[in-house]
Structure formats: structure tokens, C-alpha cells
């Protein structure tokens, strides 16, 4: 596997709004290596959503280079982008985006339905493994509306893991969750990063989240403001344990 997962060089993205041209991203460059846990920070209007869309191969840069795991993304067609997303990226969204009235395992199997190389049996096996990785083996056949927000988000993380992507891209993944559940999700993310070696890019506007990642990239007005290594990574597990004890019945088995 290529050690450099993401290479961004002089990246620009402009939008035309009538006569005006809005520069959402202006000359941004950085590299993300395999095994990193990066937070991309920025207030609204900083260009972080545009960055997320480009990193996620949902959008293409106006100019500059984006190389994802050795693939030049800028030159690909829409269909090729879709295949690339399927093979290399696992998305986790703020609002989970699970299919309603569809069981957890079917939701997790979804990305593999768009990949011919998996048989029905392999799909099921991989989905079960992914659900076990997010500690939801007991909830395989539950429907989204039978699960809590944290559980739903963990199903979404399992869905992001199942295709063995080179990068997990999280968009405000804790935005809809309370503090305790947020810590649980971050704990899971940290485990995936340290124990399973997953490369994680976490886009957020919450400064707290950056405490848990190894590196923080801050955007402002479409430009790279800061790119710093976090030498004091907080353990989400410890944070969780430091919270006042909760009623046993509400405690998540983990």
C-alpha cells in the first residue's frame, strides 16, 4: 500500500455565483500518510465542507492536484469517481444516513452491493465482521428506529469499514450526539486508528474533537491556517471513565 494516502497540491476550488466567483479553496497543500488520524477544523465559510467533498471524491478541484492512494482524482469521470469512492473511501455522516426500515446488517452490506467482487456469502461475512468491530454483534437484525443515535452511528461506521477503504472520512460524525455518546464514538475511532491502523480524516467545527486526533489542519477563508501535530492526544476512553457514573440500564455494553 502506498504510504501517502492523500496528496493535495496547490488545490483550488471556485464556484460561480452569477457574475461573482467565490474561492472556496485557495491554494491548499498537504499530505496525509497511512495510519494518521487527522482533524480538519474550521468555522463555517472556511472551506472545510468543500475540502470534505473533494477529499471524498464527490467534487473535483478547479485546479491543483489531488492524488488519493496513488490515483489522480482530478481527471476521473463521474462513474470512475463513484467506483473510487466505493473502493477507497468510507463515509461517516452527521445524520448517520442509514436506510430506514432496513436492518443493520443490510445497511452495512450496502457498499458491497455496488462491488461485483463480493458474493452474497462474503457480503454477509464481512458485514458481520464489521458489525463486530463496532461492537454491535447483538444488533445485527435491528432496524435503525430500534437503535439509539450512538448505535446508529456505529452501524454507519461499520458500513464505512466494510469495503476496507484506505481512508475513513467523517463529516461532523459526533454532531448529533450527546457528550457521552460522542466520547464513545471517538473511542471507537481511536481504536480503529491505533488497533486496526485505519487512516481517519475527521472534519468538524468542534475544537474538543481535535483533542483526540494526532494532527489538526485548520482552514480559514479557503486557506490553510495551521497544520500542527498534537503531542498530547487525549484518550477518549479515559474521558469517558471520568464522566459521572450513569444509570446502569443506560450503560452501553462494550
Amino acid at each position: 500500500m502506498n504510504n501517502q494516502i492523500v496528496v493535495i497540491k496547490n488545490l483550488k476550488r471556485e464556484f460561480r455565483m452569477g457574475a461573482e466567483t467565490v474561492r472556496a479553496l485557495n491554494d491548499v497543500s498537504f499530505v496525509i500518510n497511512a495510519g494518521e488520524f487527522v482533524t480538519i477544523m474550521g468555522s463555517s465559510g472556511s472551506g472545510k465542507t468543500t475540502m470534505l467533498n473533494i477529499l471524498g471524491c464527490l467534487d473535483r478541484p478547479s485546479s491543483g492536484e489531488y492524488i488519493l492512494d496513488g490515483v489522480q482524482v482530478s481527471k476521473l469521470s463521474k462513474s470512475e469517481l463513484a467506483v473510487l469512492r466505493n473502493n477507497k473511501i468510507g463515509f461517516v455522516f452527521q445524520s448517520y444516513n442509514l436506510l430506514p426500515r432496513t436492518s443493520a446488517i443490510e445497511n452495512v452490506e450496502l457498499p458491497m452491493l455496488y462491488n461485483k467482487k463480493y458474493s452474497a456469502k462474503e457480503r454477509r461475512e464481512k458485514a458481520l465482521t464489521a458489525l463486530a468491530a463496532v461492537k454491535l454483534s447483538q444488533r445485527v437484525n435491528h432496524l435503525p428506529n430500534q437503535m439509539s443515535g450512538g448505535q446508529q452511528q456505529r452501524v454507519a461506521i461499520a458500513r464505512a469499514l466494510v469495503n476496507d477503504p484506505v481512508m475513513i472520512l467523517a463529516d461532523e460524525a459526533t454532531g448529533n450526539l450527546d457528550t457521552r455518546t460522542s466520547y464513545e464514538i471517538m473511542m471507537l475511532m481511536q481504536e480503529l486508528n491505533t488497533d486496526h491502523g485505519k487512516t481517519i480524516v475527521f472534519v468538524t467545527h468542534e475544537p474538543d474533537i481535535a483533542l483526540f486526533s494526532k494532527r489538526t489542519i485548520t482552514l480559514k477563508d479557503g486557506k490553510l491556517l495551521k497544520d500542527e501535530i498534537n503531542n498530547h492526544v487525549q484518550s477518549a476512553r479515559k474521558m469517558l471513565e471520568s464522566l459521572p457514573a450513569l444509570d446502569e440500564s443506560l450503560n452501553v455494553k462494550s
Binding site: S79, A82, L110
Partner: peptide
């Protein structure tokens, strides 16, 4: 969602 996880047009 389907498109983001790899469904083509």
C-alpha cells in the same frame, strides 16, 4: 448516500 458509497449514475 448510495452515490457517496459508490453507486454510479
Amino acid at each position: 448516500l448510495r452515490m457517496s458509497i459508490g453507486a454510479r449514475g
